[in-house]
Design a protein around this nucleic acid. Structure first.
Lengths: 208, 208
DNA sequence: AATTCCGGAGAACAGTTGTTAACTGCATGG
DNA sequence: CCATGCAGTTAACAACTGTTCTCCGGAATT
């Protein structure tokens, strides 16, 4: 059964969260490779040395942020893809889901987009690994679809990568657009929807 | 007529080039937002203060790098797209062109991929502007194609964005893959080719 | 030939960085 | 209840940062 973890360990986790959140905030206007450990601790209101109790370095913290930003998304991806039999309404639902996720976790999304090709190798690798996992999962879901009859595993993975990359492009467009109800926002939604539609059409006629 | 610019201005341009090249080198393993001006001048072998004779800041240098990396690519893009009537051979040619460009200017390509969503606003904006220009130019070329009959301007622009984004994704895959003759490399080529093919198929059946 | 212009050097500034060591206080397990 | 463990503190370190001001030498202009 779940042992309501002691006062001590709870405090540690709280500080850790504060460090992660502060870093995430600071990373909205800079890259991880320029994020200083003192900068983070200062923002939290804790001594610089306290940082070492939680992370070896800022790169280490970055890897933790990757896990936090993408680690929990796998179920969401799977169910979303399995729902998509490329009917118009399902595409709209997928785009809406991306939009809402960006609204809910803008800092996480920005972090991933920024560090995917960023200057910190371990973080880049962690992100690539997660994205590759997404692609394989999408492929597996696609394989279940009757529309995938006759497709090779390789071609399904190629399509999956296309979907995953497209998802990221769309997310970063939503990030740049002003939130809530704005014309920019609508334009991004329409754009992403039609792009997904075009890919779906290509998918449908792939075996011709 | 062209006035063979004086000894003085020539030396200035030479130093400027050295600064840009040194920065490009240093940026292979870090982001622009962590690039220090002293770091750059040290690499060139010049006094820190000399930097100010050429750029206001490292952000300013970054904007110059964007112009250098993307500014001269527009003709190449135009002709490449106009050649693409989505025959299989032409797709292969486009992918090969991207691969060769990445081989020829890896540092520039890395810089663009990294700073497109990077931590330095003016640089991000300069890149977005160039990419938006690419998209409009691609749309214009697509519009000339008889296959685009019946397409709205907006739908053509949506397809153009898809092509541009796909080009960047492909370029960054080539960047990560080991160079010259490697199996990784072949995999990327095959992947990119098939993704372009799928998009072409979607394009062909868009009006159904 | 004399004067102006200007790219670069030099030194100094206050402020920042990561990392170390030795400490304090308090929750924890025996 | 006492001894241990450990999150967080304090102080100090050498090294680094961007920026200013003053100066130099040689090309450019007149």
């Amino acid at each position: 059964m779940s042992h309501t973890l002691g006062v001590r360990q709870a405090q540690k986790l709280k500080t850790r969260r504060a460090l992660l959140d502060a870093a995430l905030g600071l990373l909205e206007e800079q890259s991880l490779s320029s994020l200083g450990l003192r900068e983070v601790t200062r923002a939290v209101g804790v001594a610089p040395t306290a940082f070492y109790r939680h992370f070896h370095s800022t790169a280490d913290l970055g890897v933790a942020l990757v896990e936090e930003a993408l680690g929990g998304l796998h179920p969401m991806i799977r169910t979303t893809v399995s729902e998509v039999d490329d009917s118009e309404e399902r595409i709209a639902r997928a785009v809406g889901l991306i939009a809402r996720h960006v609204d809910a976790f803008p800092a996480h999304v920005r972090f991933i987009a920024r560090e995917r090709h960023g200057g910190v190798q371990p973080v880049r690798e962690a992100i690539q690994e997660q994205l590759a996992r997404f692609a394989r999962e999408v492929r597996d879901e696609l394989a279940k679809d009757p529309q995938s009859a006759g497709w090779s595993e390789d071609d399904l993975l190629m399509l999956a990568h296309l979907y995953v990359d497209q998802m990221l492009v769309t997310a970063s467009l939503f990030l740049e657009a002003p939130p809530a109800p704005s014309p920019e926002r609508e334009r991004v939604t329409r754009l992403a929807t039609r792009q997904l539609r075009l890919i779906s059409i290509g998918r449908r006629h792939w075996l011709d």
